[in-house]
Nucleic acid binder design. Structure first.
Lengths: 249, 249
DNA sequence: TCAAATGTGTTACAGTTCGTTACAAACGCA
DNA sequence: TGCGTTTGTAACGAACTGTAACACATTTGA
């Protein structure tokens, strides 16, 4: 699943829109003070095992986070998009490699500097904590996707998440940009390339999506796609109120 | 995978034994001041969606953490054992239900009280943070298990993790206590009961494990089992040194 | 600039793994 | 003790993966 943008989280997810609004602005200004670094497609921002000295923010483009097993198998743990953070749940060393899918611009801040800023501006800590909780929540959701959903459900869920990130609403077509390859998607969903292609072709055949080249999907019937995606994100509205009241420092 | 005990983590995992030693002692004393509560097998400590007002520590027994999908499917997210914490990565509301597998004793502390204690004793925060990172690391590992390993690899990995938790060493037989049902294990590994049974029977047939009733497994050849478990935990020793240097506050 | 090489996506056919179904054994309770 | 429920295991079938081939897109090198 994508790490979500504010607009995608607005749809009944566990975070109040308000908290994240200020979240993005304040953390954003933190990173804005750092110089932007450019990475060409395929370049690593950091490697699994490197000392986790920095947090990264994506200023432009898309990165994949992955781990390679001893036998060469690769697991994509997630993708990160504009505005999102990388490395927030790593300590000591990075537990995955972060690699540019597209040409990418990122900003880095050292953990030391972040901690110094947290001392100056106490409001920063809850913002960082919120990001950590969000990442944990996303990981748990992904565990459920991989453990309980079949291949087509997984692909549908992946596309629904992408549509939500794009601010998709019920009843209108959503154009999704998918900068990663089918292999990336397959390694993310625990499937093979062929199965991903098959699932997509089937959705196309049923008129639920339209494919335009490799990196563009139009979701034509979002509610149909959603009903195929399993009920992983069935969260009660109860969360929204409690999250605001209980935001940890 | 189990949330690990100190002794299991001693085998090249991402946490220095020293840090967790003091971790267990100090958080332990925090909870020791709280009254222990008894739960019969099958009782819920809290439900998915409840306000996440407390952290829990397991004083005795085993709990399963699970979520139920809208269509009735159940995903077990993890198991918690003596000394381990529950709810540390939840905020606002619990993102899963915690249910007693066995008769259980737990201690609770409110987040409010925990924060007050953190103010008094600043050393507590890094201990809590370490637990959060540990939980995130375990979640990522589980994502890889579900996404990349086949059924037998998953079961083998599950048993290796259990053996590690029991302090198993290479070359000697390890007796594992598995208090949960095969359905629990299946829902945790994204498999069915039958597949779990098959995998275990196969391991038994090959002389790698011995089965004694429902809740007892003896690992006879740990290195064989380990070689069947995929290379998910292939972590370099580099982590140990960096983790100590970089423990966040 | 253009052709060759390489990478990526899709589809058809065949093989493997795991889910479903059926049944047996064990357990818990009145 | 008897019965209902839970748990465990084996045979058949569904779902997914693997292999191969082809089409198309992108990159590389002359």
């Amino acid at each position: 699943m994508y790490s979500s943008h504010l607009t995608s989280l607005a749809r009944g997810a566990a975070h109040p829109a308000f908290a994240l609004q200020s979240n993005e602005l304040t953390l954003e200004s933190l990173f804005a003070a750092q110089p932007a670094e450019r990475l060409p497609s395929g370049a690593a921002a950091f490697w699994e095992g490197d000392p986790a000295t920095h947090l990264l923010q994506v200023a432009e483009g898309c990165l994949r986070l992955y781990r390679v097993l001893g036998d060469g198998r690769r697991a994509v743990i997630g993708f990160r998009f504009v505005g999102e953070l990388i490395g927030i749940s790593c300590y000591g060393s990075y537990s995955y490699t972060a690699e540019a899918v597209t040409h990418v611009r990122i900003r880095r801040i050292t953990r030391t500097r972040l901690q110094a800023r947290e001392q100056e501006i106490p409001e920063i800590r809850p913002l960082v904590m919120a990001k950590m909780f969000q990442e944990m929540d996303a990981a748990q959701r992904h565990i459920i996707v991989l453990g309980q959903l079949g291949a087509e459900e997984r692909v549908a869920h992946f596309l629904v998440s992408a549509a939500m990130r794009m601010g998709g609403e019920q009843g209108e077509a959503v154009l999704i940009d998918l900068p990663m390859t089918r292999l990336d998607i397959a390694d993310y969903l625990g499937l093979t390339i062929e199965t991903v292609c098959r699932a997509m072709s089937k959705l196309k055949h049923h008129g639920i999506i339209a494919l335009d080249g490799r990196h563009s999907v139009t979701v034509l019937r979002l509610s149909d796609l959603r009903s195929m995606a399993g009920d992983v994100d069935d969260l009660s509205g109860f969360h929204d109120q409690c999250a605001l009241a209980q935001l940890p420092n």
